[in-house]
Design a protein around this nucleic acid. Structure first.
Length: 849
RNA sequence: GCCGAAGUGGCGGAACCGGCAGACGCGGCGGACUUAAAAUCCGCUGCCCGCAAGGGCGUCAGGGUUCGAACCCCUGCUUCGGCACCA
């Protein structure tokens, strides 16, 4: 028989035949349905961020989901009851944009995409429990958004307010503070520069939880995400200090103006005061003589969109309002200015300007010729040394100067004393400032959760009664040429009756930010169709918090912050018991297009996974994505290398089905490696398998999938070397193949199942799925080498390597090493000064002078 | 500007806690099998000198600590991510 004839005995590996067959079988067996009430095993809630139904799954979805699926499967093989659901984040602008382009209503477009994506998801072979699916644009989901809104309203966590808000002129929508990006302040979605508008809007009071959100004690999250959230919340300790206006010709004086500062120690250096142009006192304090200039400035800064603000290095502007304030520490009159570098929304909208110790104030003072007075001096600096820059450093040794009786005190201490002193008669108070603002949830778009309130001429703003929920979104709205929210022109939706007086009323047409949907969806997975409440409390208590959450880092201060807020708010409304939603978080990197840019249809750099699955199979695609590099890194997409992973699976196929075959292209094929007898070969195989099991187990646990795959490839290569030899097919070989398949099962579930099944047939055993097997235990004794190779350095340079018994003593090792020719040559006759045995015998370094 | 992450062969990347730099894969070169090609398999593959044995150099650049540095420290450069006058 020729070698080719031998090879042809086994079928080729055909993933397109294998994979759908097993997917159907798993479905039939309901292998992936979780019994949420099974308490006999430890629970494990594995969650991956649900996708927006944009139309097609792209390679980025696979990159997020398939390793997460491997994690879920790995846990299941450890005997845990794993819940791994998926759903769709179905409200949002892309559906509207598609509808405006024509041909579809947002609902139709969305539902078609969902149907398509469900089909695509199945080709992954992921273990989703589809019974848990949530689709957020369904009334059975979004009615609970409305219900939460009413609860939050009751609890004072939702409110309506007039506020200057960021408006995207292209999307015709108000944006949350978190959705405005970059120095040019552009819309996160379309990149259009936003403009300010004054509008009555609905807010969620996330600021109430600012301090609690700063604590990460209960969660294990990546440091970068925690830092980003911490910076976003932006807590700074300081004091509010009350100045009073001075009496002048046009003004009686005595009007309090509160300022916020983090540097009360510099109070004696305040040489002027600046109000935000929007500050309510501006109108009242402005002197008649400068009123035209002040009005012009206020008008201009109000009108100014952020477009004009091309750079933060922009020239500072401002005008004096012709009034003075009195510095409470020294009674000095200081001029009041308005300038747009003071923000109305932070602190009190007013600052005391200390040009000597604040860069911005310094620049402003220089530009307008305002006095600069040093009040903090570093060691070696005199109180009246001239200043070329603001001195802002904070060191332990600096002391106060020019500060009356506080002079010579250390700066920090002096600051405290100044506040204490002023606090006695209520002119100061220690406070905390935050950068974070309340979450603006109103959107002027029709494709979202209707906010459940009505406007009644008699009763004003009236919440919809709980028993009247859901406020159902009509499907048949029409887009308006003028860009108005279509709901404003939909009488069937708009006209209603007042829940209080039954008189005619108008519905709120604003809908909720879609981030409301994603702020609690993982709770709903546990009871997606429950119709008497948003969450099933006993199930939530059993299953939450989520044990492992995976998703992109782009949500660090959007979704992930809102989700934490929602959990805390739900807790305070008595709905859940926990403080945090996600115990552990892993941010995988992003797959970019081949051009290094974000994948998008418009750039034409989207990689279609279906095509790769057709060619190589889902298992190869899954494994390749895991092998590419560290999971948290991502990177530009390149398919080169996928062939290597596919070859690996083909080798696994060959090893498992044809251990006795040989390679005609290799003259050594069928012979044991030189110098190895059968016994040594059997030991080598066992050792390789158990060593691999040890490292692969650790790599699954720490999500180091790239090296995990590398180690599986290595094991397969080792087995390949023994194929066709006298040890192929023996017990050790068989065990190694068995371990290889089990280790492969979480990552390449189809081929593992197929080969496992065929082994069972050969063994005459009844069929059972590899995915219900327990993860194997390594035999550490077997995995330990009897000898080891020790690198030998002389003065830190590698000169030789010696193979010694594993248990050799340091003294014996030194004798062996010093007798080596290469070592003696390198020593050049000199006596060793010192011999270093590094890290448990990993290396020997001989030091000579 | 501030905060954070990172810089290793032609490429993706590996290297536990300061201890053999380049695992594994791609690509490349050579070979086997084949009438031939594909597929598959085997060998080599950081750079330089050398027929070879061997030697020298090498982890962004420059300095430092150490018996020993890709890893720690200092200075600088580059790339990526976040923030955007937050008093």
């Amino acid at each position: 028989m020729t070698a080719t004839a031998k090879r042809s005995r086994i079928e080729r590996y055909e993933p397109t035949e294998v994979e759908p067959r097993w997917q159907a079988k798993w479905d039939e067996l309901r292998l992936h349905e979780t019994d949420l009430h099974d308490r006999s095993r430890p629970k494990s809630y594995i969650l991956t961020m649900y996708p927006y139904p944009s139309g097609d799954l792209h390679i980025g979805h696979w990159y997020i989901v398939t390793p997460t699926d491997a994690i879920a499967r790995f846990h299941r093989m450890h005997g845990e009851n794993v819940f791994f659901p998926i759903g769709f984040d179905a409200f949002g602008l892309p559906a509207e944009n598609a509808a405006i382009r024509g041909g579809f209503l947002p609902r139709e477009w969305t539902m078609q995409n969902i149907a398509n994506m469900r089909r695509q998801f199945r080709t992954m072979g992921a273990t989703f429990d589809w019974r848990a699916e949530v689709v957020t644009c369904e009334p059975e989901y979004y009615r609970w958004n409305q219900w939460f809104f009413l609860k939050f309203l009751e609890a004072g966590l939702a409110y309506r307010a007039m506020a200057p808000v960021d408006w995207c002129p292209k999307d015709q929508v108000v944006l949350a503070r978190e959705q405005v990006e970059g120095p040019n302040r552009v819309c996160w979605r379309c990149g259009t520069p936003v403009v300010k508008r004054d509008l009555e809007q609905w807010f969620f009071r996330i600021t109430k939880y600012a301090d609690e959100l700063l604590s990460y004690d209960a969660i294990h999250w990546p440091e970068p995400v925690r830092l980003m959230q911490t910076n976003w919340i932006g807590r700074s300790e300081g004091a509010e200090i009350t100045f009073e206006t001075a009496q002048s010709e046009h003004h009686a004086g005595g009007e309090p103006i509160r300022v916020f500062t983090t540097r009360p120690d510099t109070l004696f250096g305040a040489t002027f005061m600046v109000l935000a142009p929007e500050h309510p006192l501006v109108e009242r304090l402005t002197a008649p003589t400068v009123k035209p200039a002040v009005d012009a400035y206020v008008y201009q800064s109000r009108r100014q969109t952020e477009i004009e603000r091309l750079s933060t290095e922009r020239e500072k502007t401002g005008v004096p309002i012709g009034a003075d304030a009195i510095n409470p520490v020294n009674g000095e009159r200081i001029p009041i200015w308005i300038a747009d570098y003071v923000l109305a929304g932070y602190g009190t909208g007013a600052i005391m300007a200390v040009p000597a110790h604040d860069e911005r104030d310094f620049v402003f003072a220089r530009k307008f010729g305002l006095p600069v007075r040093r009040v903090v001096a570093a060691p070696g600096t005199e109180a009246d040394d001239p200043m070329d820059d603001a001195y802002v450093a904070h060191t332990v040794d600096e002391r106060l100067v020019n500060s009356d009786r506080f002079s010579d005190l250390p700066a920090e201490d002096g600051g405290h004393r100044i506040v204490e002193w002023l606090a006695k008669d209520g002119r100061a108070q220690a406070t905390v400032g935050y950068r974070i603002r309340d979450w603006l949830i109103s959107r002027q778009r029709p494709w979202g959760t209707p906010i459940p309130v009505v406007y009644c001429d008699r009763d004003g703003i009236v919440p919809v009664r709980e028993d009247q929920l859901p406020v159902v979104l009509p499907d048949d709205f029409e887009y308006q040429r003028n860009g108005d929210n279509p709901l404003l022109h939909h009488p069937g939706f708009l006209d209603t009756t007042c829940p209080k007086c039954d008189g005619p009323a108008r519905r709120e047409t604003d809908t909720m930010d879609t981030f409301v949907d994603s702020s609690w969806y993982w709770y709903r997975y546990l009871s997606p169709h429950k119709d008497d409440g948003p969450v099933d409390r006993p199930l939530v208590d059993t299953w939450c918090p989520v044990d492992q959450y995976t998703g992109g880092a782009e949500h660090a201060v959007l979704h992930l912050l809102y989700a934490r807020f929602f959990t805390k708010a739900m807790r305070d409304c008595g709905l859940v018991a926990e403080d945090e939603p996600f115990k552990r978080l892993f941010n995988q990197g992003q797959i970019l297009g081949a051009d290094g840019e974000r994948m998008s249809k418009s750039r034409g750099n989207v990689q279609d996974p279906d095509e790769l699955v057709q060619r190589f199979g889902a298992d190869t695609v899954r494994l390749f994505l895991m092998f590419m590099g560290p999971w948290d890194q991502g990177g530009p997409w390149s398919p080169s290398g996928i062939g290597g992973v596919h070859r690996f699976l083909t080798r696994v196929w060959t090893i498992a089905l044809d251990p006795h075959g040989s390679e005609p292209g290799d003259p050594e094929s069928g012979h044991l490696p030189a110098g190895e007898d059968e016994q040594a070969a059997r030991t080598a195989i066992r050792r390789a398998a158990h060593k691999t099991l040890m490292v692969v187990t650790a790599e699954y646990e720490s999500f180091k999938f790239n090296t995990m795959v590398a180690h599986l490839i290595e094991l397969a290569n080792t087995l390949m070397r023994y194929r066709g030899t006298s040890v192929a097919g023996l017990a050790e070989w068989d065990e190694a193949v068995r371990l290889l398949l089990l280790m492969l099962a979480p990552s390449a579930p189809h081929i593992a199942e197929e080969l496992w099944s065929r082994r069972l047939v050969v063994a005459g055993s009844a069929w059972s799925s590899i995915h219900t097997e327990r993860w194997p235990e390594p035999d550490e004794a077997v995995a330990t080498d009897e000898t080891r190779e020790v690198p030998v350095q002389v003065n830190g340079k590698l000169r030789d390597r010696v193979v010694v018994p594993a248990g050799i003593s340091e003294i014996e090792l030194e004798q062996v090493v010093l007798a080596r020719d290469k070592v003696r040559a390198a020593l050049g006759g000199k006596a060793p000064e010192r011999i270093i045995h590094a890290g448990g015998g990993r290396l020997v370094n001989i030091v000579v002078r």
